[in-house]
Amino acid sequence: MVIKKKQKSLPHKKYKPKLAVFKFASCDGCQLSLLDCEDELLAVTGEIEIAHFLEASRRVLDGPYDLSLVEGSITTPHDAKRIRDVRKISRTLVTIGACATAGGIQALRNFKDVKEFVSLVYARPQYISTLATSTPIVEHVPVDFELRGCPINKSQLVETISAFLQGRKPQTPTSSVCMECKRRGTVCVMVAQQMACMGPVTQDGCGAICPAYNRGCYGCFGPKETTNTESLAKWFLEMGMKKEEVMRTFRGFNGYAPEFRQESERQEMG
């Protein structure tokens, strides 16, 4: 209904920006967040031409695209080339999710020898063509905006698309999960229950869900601005955690993000 009203006030058919969604190494969870925008999706299709979104429709319109959402990390030589092609046909390229912005959980391979995994997992390793690392999109092509999360948050996605449509900056905070935790009135699980929580070094965006369900933050949204992982790791150790556990806490979905990577390596070496 909103859309109708809008069309009435605009007599001539306006140009609808073309949206494309591309998938690289990922679980599809972030694309699902876009599909999950039930009500908002109607408005999206009113404002935007969904030109390439294989998860939703087989219909594919040719590029160039005005807004490309890229999910997943780069793990194969083929994808390393494909992302360059995607960049060429995208006016604005937004990476969505921990895989695309930090390499994802599959970036755990970056800390080990991938050949070993391949020989253990596959019956015929010679057919596997893979890179030694899982890397974020930004290591391959310029990225216009990164939307964090594992998976991304639905309202942040809608906010990013709205901001794109209106030519303004998306309002996605870079501050700590703790701030949202306090705003929603959750009692801190780290102070009151001595649970390890990544909230103080993690960027908000999820709305501090985990502490609200009585567990520590896993760091799904990656490092916040100005992270002090060293101090938090020290506190974890003082709480009685083993170095190995602290290392694993930092080596999660965003384990390859530079700030978390450095900390897990520090714990591993020291």
């Binding site: 501050s175 700590s176 703790c178 701030m179 306090k182 705003r183 801190c188 909230g199 103080p200 070094v201 100005t226 992270t227 002090n228 060293e230 101090s231 938090l232």
Partner: peptide
């Protein structure tokens, strides 16, 4: 060196 700039204190 210790502060996490997490803002809990101000909240």
């Amino acid at each position: 060196q210790r502060c996490l700039s997490c803002a809990n204190c101000t909240m």
